[in-house]
């Protein structure tokens, strides 16, 4: 499923116009993005939480050429899956 499929599925499910559905899906992910960009976490119960991890700068090495490189400090987004979703994708089957 991609963004466009999600917009269509929401349109059907919530009885929206294609334009409104698109605007809402964009708002949804833009709000999460803006929150993470401001350094804040996002917690959606039953789905999961998004956090930003901070990394210090370090001197690395290109494993192919052995050339040293300076890796600057960076931040990376992380997602931790929530309990309900975790259980939904991994139903324990009776054997």
């Amino acid at each position: 499923m991609n963004r466009s499929d999600l917009i269509n599925a929401l349109k059907e499910k919530a009885n929206l116009s294609r334009k409104d559905s698109e605007k809402i899906v964009d708002t949804f992910f833009q709000t999460i993005t803006d929150t993470l960009a401001s350094g804040e976490r996002v917690e959606i119960r039953g789905f999961g939480s998004f956090t930003v991890k901070k990394y210090k700068p370090y001197t690395g090495r290109n494993p192919k050429t052995g050339v040293q490189i300076r890796v600057p400090a960076k931040k990376l987004p992380f997602f931790k899956v929530g309990k309900e979703l975790k259980e939904m994708v991994d139903l324990e089957e009776d054997e």
């Binding site: 963004r3 999600l6 979703l85």
Partner: peptide, 24 residues
Amino acid sequence: IVDSILSIVKDRLAAGEDVLISGF
């Protein structure tokens, strides 16, 4: 609407499908 977005994504994942949100 917000519950719908979340349940659509969750159902697809539960069905074993990847969900790609471009730009996110």
